[in-house]
């Protein structure tokens, strides 16, 4: 009661009325402010950086600070020249290097995603079906590696995989092999690194979906004489699709642009787009082409995902 009186008093207060009136005039209410915050966030940390990169990607390279030509030139008092150069994008098509790097990145990322799913699904399933006290402990163990720096964890794999490393030394001491198996600086090491690093991103969304699942459906299936395997295939798996999609995206998208893992664990011939981008930026000092590579990657990745989401949204609408 007291609160309501207080609110009424505040509403009657002159400056408040004035301010809220002004805000309403601009179309800002409490509701729009709450919705607007994420938009503001996206504009600040996604849209503006994106526009800056887009701008650099259509400029010309030069020797100077910054190392690209400004887009707008003031020629005379009222004459402004706008310079847009699409040559940087055309350049990406001229050399097969870029296409191959994109393709290879997508292949490696897709492979890692599938591996993450194969390893992560049983893990998430197991965690979701254990007793609640165990569940928290197991979830904790999935998240615990995040407490150590990502870079340190990738470096640790160097110590495990190298010729003079843990695995080879143990195998040689046991007499299983005479010569060390070369694992570091191979594609195998890249897959190990990516799957290891991104596994929690697969396990957590899968766990969230599996945990919410209605278990009585499985009981009903069992009562009606359905074999557990068939029940899993026809009930659990389809119901966990949202988790599979979310987890796969969380693994696939960062894996495509991955730079650190292939650089540290991969062989010299691992050609991934993150590395190509790094070289354009640092070795060639060509900010415009580097930006064009980044924008092309974004379009290549975000495009299909947006189409997918649009279709899903339409399907969801049709079901209703």
């Amino acid at each position: 009661m007291l609160l309501a009186e207080l609110m009424a008093w505040i509403r009657a207060f002159g400056p408040y009325r004035w301010a809220s009136h002004r805000l309403l005039n601009w179309g800002i209410t409490g509701r729009t402010a709450v919705i607007g915050l994420p938009y503001l966030w996206l504009i600040l940390f996604f849209l503006i950086p994106f526009i800056i990169v887009l701008k650099i990607s259509v400029s010309d390279i030069r020797l100077g600070m910054p190392p690209y030509e400004p887009m707008v030139h003031w020629i005379e008092h009222q004459v402004v020249a706008l310079q847009i150069n699409f040559g940087n994008y055309a350049f990406l098509f001229k050399d097969a290097l870029y296409r191959n790097a994109y393709m290879n990145s997508i292949l490696v990322a897709a492979g890692s995603t599938v591996l993450c799913l194969l390893v992560g699904y049983p893990m998430a399933y197991g965690i979701a079906r254990t007793s609640p006290s165990w569940r928290n402990l197991l979830l904790m163990m999935v998240m615990l590696p995040f407490w150590t720096s990502f870079l340190l964890r990738v470096y640790a794999w160097i110590g495990i995989l190298k010729n003079n490393g843990l695995i080879n030394n143990v195998l040689m001491a046991m007499g299983v092999i005479d010569e060390p198996i070369v694992m570091l600086q191979t594609d195998f090491a890249v897959y190990v690194g990516i799957v290891y690093s991104y596994l929690p991103f697969m396990v957590l969304p899968l766990y969230a979906t599996l945990e919410k699942m209605d278990l009585t459906l499985l009981e009903a299936a069992a009562d009606l004489g359905c074999h557990p395997t068939k029940a899993f295939m026809t009930i659990t798996l389809p119901l966990s699709v949202p988790g599979i999609v979310a987890g796969s995206m969380l693994v696939f998208i960062p894996a495509v642009g991955e730079f650190v893992i292939p650089a540290l664990l991969g062989g010299p011939d691992s050609l991934m787009i993150g590395r190509v981008l790094w070289e354009e930026f640092f070795h060639n000092r060509d900010w415009p082409v580097a930006s064009a590579v980044a924008i092309a990657m974004l379009i290549l990745l975000v495009g299909p995902i947006m189409i997918l989401q649009y279709n899903q949204g339409r399907q969801a609408g049709a079901h209703r």
């Binding site: 050399d95 097969a96 290097l97 010299p268 011939d269 691992s270 050609l271 070289e279 060639n284 060509d286």
Partner: peptide, 14 residues
Amino acid sequence: RLSNRAWTTVRTGQ
């Protein structure tokens, strides 16, 4: 740019 491109060829065979 030429030298870096040649280097990528050396490094990756592409």
